[in-house]
Nucleic acid binder design. Structure first.
Lengths: 231, 231
DNA sequence: CTCATGGTTCGATCTTAATCGAAGCATAAC
DNA sequence: GTTATGCTTCGATTAAGATCGAACCATGAG
């Protein structure tokens, strides 16, 4: 029965507390240096370095060196997806949540998932885009409709300017706190970036929290419809 | 940055080779006894028992005892989803596939994913159901259309007879080999079961492989359309 | 009842790998 | 050039947990 890819290797990679902390920190979407990550993980620089090389060898993170700094980030959206899915399991599965934490409500409301908007507001935006026919779901694939291209344009995003990478334009990603999908992929990244440019929201340093301004709340509500909380 | 659910615990649970083998074996969808699983994992009965109690405590597997046997199965579709996702990472990520294995092509063609059809044929069926409007994708949620109810009925599935559990009727699940979605949930389970009833396919004992008969291939092609391999 | 079988628990052993500090390298600042 | 900073490598220590066999419990078969 030992068919298929060997899960154990990847899972063990994620399964160490220090490495899990590192990966969680990278879910913020920011590229972080080894020193910063050692702090996040609560571990000495040398051990962090060792962990990072393992994560890189395992294809979970990607490193770019710039000068005497080495910046680490998640290797792909796929990795972020798996991490979110694991969080979903961990949240639902553990008998007692260790510490719900004071920041928990804020995290559930709006947070960053690698580089796109997640949490309640993320899933709300996603549902709205679907309801309006801006996005068209084809199974797990997402298409941007003609109307959608227009919408995105007026929102201030230049599609042609997006990096033409291997990564798909639209993807969905299962949200651990809402247990619904939110928008990922290049477009998801661009949407969040645009909201930050507009001054709607900004990330809280050192966390995954995204905090909306008063104007941001208003703009978001206007653009993505009424706030009807889940059905 | 230590916000959100703690991934490490769950990931470490999956990350031990013996436990990973156990979980992979349970992906066959069959409930297996501790003794059988110890064989699958290549480990003594006592260690398997220890692993199983950890997996149960962690909420990954569920145990039912019947007489002096104790049957283990995956705790939920969610767990199966996460395992498939991890397989996707492991398949894409590892620099050199350890051993593609002789059964690999068969696995990629048609296999069981917990209790529904996966692999090339699984994703083909899924795409067909969407194209014909039998299933309607609403983000990550799937609805069965009116036409769909009729279709499912003529295929020989009594929807009302399905267990009315907490689990959703339709779900999608990301296929590790095809990197596309296939159908999961109660309906996915029922579809596969019906195919087995019809004599279209049967599971190969001791593996996740699903092998179609000649008539099964024909019926499948007729029911789910031309065989146009991926676009 | 006795016996066999499936499973769990216990204790001891042993391997793996996480950890740190110190030393070494490379790059940038001066 | 010299010095400081970011990171890696090395070696030694240590702790966690995977493993097994033996003893033990529970259930079903006879």
């Amino acid at each position: 029965m030992r068919d298929g890819p060997d899960i154990a290797y990847v899972a063990a990679l994620i399964g160490d507390p220090a490495r899990a902390n590192i990966l969680t920190a990278l879910m913020s979407g920011k590229a972080l240096t080894a020193t910063e990550l050692s702090g996040e993980a609560g571990v000495s620089l040398s051990t962090a370095s060792s962990h990072l090389s393992k994560l890189e060898a395992g294809g979970l993170v990607r490193a770019r060196k710039s000068g005497r700094h080495k910046y680490f980030s998640l290797a792909s959206d796929d990795v972020a997806s798996v991490l979110e899915a694991l969080m979903g399991l961990a949240a639902g599965t553990r008998q007692l949540r260790t510490r719900p934490g004071p920041r928990d409500p804020e995290l559930r409301r709006a947070r960053v998932c690698y580089n796109h908007l997640a949490g309640d507001m993320g899933t709300r935006m996603y549902r709205c885009l679907l309801d309006r026919g801006i996005l068209i779901a084809k199974g797990d694939l997402l298409d941007l409709s003609e109307a959608g291209r227009a919408f995105v344009g007026t929102f201030g995003i230049d599609l042609d300017a997006l990096p033409r990478s291997r990564a798909p334009l639209c993807r969905d990603c299962l949200d651990w706190s809402e247990r619904q999908a939110h928008l990922a992929g290049q477009l998801g990244r661009a949407m969040l970036a645009r909201m930050e440019d507009l001054g709607w929201a900004r990330r809280v340093a050192g966390t995954r929290i995204v905090r909306f301004t008063r104007e941001g709340e208003a703009g978001f509500a206007e653009t993505f419809g009424a706030v009807e909380q889940r059905l």
